[in-house]
Structures are given as structure tokens and as C-alpha cells.
Amino acid sequence: MYNVKAILTGLLVFMAIFTSPFWLNQLGVDYKRPALAMPVGEKECLAPTDYMRGEHMRLLNEWRDLALRQGERLYTDARGRTWEINLQNTCQGCHNDRAAFCDACHVSNSVSPYCWNCHLEAKGKS
């Protein structure tokens, strides 16, 4: 085998660079779930918190199609409570602090939803 030294050092350097994200990640800090400002006075959303955390975007899409396409503006949740299908008024009625609730999580997860391109922010605290 020719040039063993050069090949082996080259391979080592390559492996070090190739696996660097893995090693560097061991040094870095763990991802911490951001602390969200929960609505005051309200204890439960229209679905359990875990579901809302993971699937709220899907629910919002369903709501959009129900309200706009089917003209259905009322939603009954699993516990039998009725809500008006309305992001701007129903959702933001409780979650009225966009920066401390919506954005806190969206920013730390590098997602930028386009909701607020049109929907106006709640006029709660800001």
C-alpha cells in the first residue's frame, strides 16, 4: 500500500470533520422547552395540552377549512363545549400575548408561520 501515512491522516481528518456535529452537540447545551406565558384564569384549552402542543397547526387548518369552505363557524370539543371557529378572536381571546406564547415556541423551533401576515394580533398585553 502506497502513501499509508497520508491516506490514514486524510481519513482521520475526514472522519473528524464528518462527525463533528455529533461531537460538538455533546458539548453544547440541551434544548430546553421555552417557558410560555399561559393565559391567566383559563385552565384548559379545547383539547389536552399535549395534543395542542403537537397538533395545533393541524387543528387550525381544519378550522380554516370548516369556517371558509363549509361555512361552519361552531366547533364542539371532546368535552362538549362549543367554540366559535376563529383564530383571531377565539384563540387569541385567551392566548393574547403573541410574543410570550406563540413566538416563544416558534422562534426556538425555527418555524415562521404566516398567520399574522393577515390575522391581526390580539390587543391584550404586549
Partner: peptide, 24 residues
Amino acid sequence: SHPAFPARMRGVVEKCAFCSERLP
């Protein structure tokens, strides 16, 4: 600003919807 109804964004066409949000 009227917080009950959303606005629109650049590059979107808009028109009257017979107040479909009020009829229900």
C-alpha cells in the same frame, strides 16, 4: 384597526363576501 376581522397581505385579491362571517 378592527380586531374582529383579519386583514389581507400583499399579492392577494379581495372582494365582498356578503358578510359570510356574520350570517351564521
